[in-house]
Computed example of a mutant assay.
Amino acid sequence: MCAPTTAKEQPQQQRLRKIPLLTRINIFLINLAFAVLHVILKPTGLEPIISALAVGNLFGLILPCFGVIAVLAHIIVGPILNAFLPNAYETYVLEYKWQWFGALFLLNVLVGLMDDSHHDVEGANNRLKSSTNPIIQASNAFWMSSFEYVQMTVKPWAEDATLPLNRQYIFACHPHGIHCMPLAIFHGKGTAFDRRFPGICENKLSGLAASVVFRLPGVREFFLSLPYIDASRHVVERALRADRSIFVCTGSGEESLLTKPGEDTLVLSRRKGFVRLALSFGCDIVPIFGVGNSDLFKTYSWGMGFRMWLQKRLHISIPIFHGRYLTPLPYKKPVTVLVGEPLCLPKPKVRGEKPDDELVEKYLKIYIERVKELHKQNTVGRKLQII
């Protein structure tokens, strides 16, 4: 067991980060769209399927979102505007709809390029949680229903396993798959992880996402409405100095390109950053392994050489995949999220100092062996490749 520490206090209410007004409006509209979908789909039993489809189509999420928003605008905004000025909606909005659309799109791109709210580590506390706002309640219910479709069970390393709230953790998630679904267990209250380890998701916990996702209209709103921050080293170091724990998929985009159903391929032997950070700040590393995450989509190796070149040179990952019915809907297969025993690293003499390279190599090798053992003990006939 790891020695106790007092680095973190019990969960407490934290301020939310400040984000631009336009982004707040977009988040409200997106929540409204998903709230409407919840109300419409809940009685039909189709909500888990559509929610899982939205998750699988994460980076195309803006299209269906704004489709619903456009319908809402036509039904609600139009009559309200016409009540003040007869035919104003048809004359000034519909007549110039493409100009309005172009201007709003460019404005969103500009805000996305200039806004750095994803660097605000202290305020990264937005997450799926209980709310008195009926729109937020309904929107959260829509997203939570995806767990009914992609059923993720959490299996800790021991029946009596605990994660003390007075520790600081780096949750290292594997494998990435097309989408790193196990990351969702950290998004807030009510998930399988939150029920098994209560308090962790509320106790200053942030996820790491690549800088590019905070620049894409629609996608950035999704990540800013959850507890994600920029994965840049200086931002992560600020988060750790503020005694926050983090969760991250260590294999990132390169690992997504190597996804094959029935196999688990981890890009790990060269990924020393999370170990270096853990040694610098005295964090425990907790391995998180989603067995079955690689099986949720069918993947193809077409043009792999060029796509790997893009990933290595420009950090752009373009996996070729599909789910059920040739859509982004994941195949309906269970995912067992293994929570490994925390790897306790030695505390630094000076918090934040750069650790010795040999020490980093030593603990990376120990961590890799822990991951191999975790996989071996909980799978049968499933190939694990670590590169």
Rank of each mutant, 00 (worst) to 15 (best):
G251P: 02
R15L: 14
C2E: 14
V36I: 10
P348V: 11
N166Y: 13
V93A: 00
A158V: 12
N82E: 13
V337M: 04
T5N: 05
I246Q: 00
N126W: 10
C2H: 11
T6E: 15
F306S: 10
L104M: 07
P134N: 11
H187G: 05
A242P: 00
C249Y: 08
A88L: 07
Q385L: 15
K365S: 12
E47K: 08
A7E: 11
I25C: 06
N108K: 00
P334E: 08
V212H: 01
L46E: 13
F84S: 07
G251W: 01
I69P: 04
V212Q: 01
V380E: 15
P86S: 05
L107R: 03
K365T: 13
P4T: 15
Q10Y: 11
F214V: 02
F186W: 11
P330H: 05
V350W: 07
L128R: 02
A184H: 11
L338K: 02
K362Q: 14
V219R: 02
M1L: 14
K298L: 12
G352S: 09
Q311V: 04
T191Q: 05
T162A: 15
I49P: 02
L37G: 00
Y325W: 14
V213R: 01
I170C: 04
M308W: 05
L63N: 10
V77M: 15
G290Q: 13
S294I: 11
F147A: 09
E9K: 07
V339T: 09
E122D: 12
P175K: 02
V213C: 00
A242M: 08
P43E: 14
A88K: 02
I170F: 09
L329E: 06
V275I: 15
N87P: 00
C65D: 15
S146R: 04
G282L: 11
K298N: 15
L21T: 09
K383R: 11
E122L: 10
R24S: 13
V275A: 06
N126G: 04
A124K: 03
V286H: 01
C283E: 08
G123L: 05
V212N: 01
S256N: 03
F66D: 08
R324V: 15
K333A: 06
A138Y: 05
V286G: 00
A138L: 10
T5C: 05
L41S: 02
D264N: 07
R244S: 03
V236F: 00
L279M: 13
C173N: 06
P328S: 02
K97P: 00
P330K: 01
I368H: 03
Y96K: 06
K383T: 14
L32F: 11
K333L: 14
L46K: 15
R233K: 04
S139F: 12
A73S: 14
E341A: 07
A172D: 13
I387H: 04
F274T: 03
I27N: 06
V275T: 13
R307K: 08
Y325K: 06
L16I: 12
V109F: 05
Y149P: 03
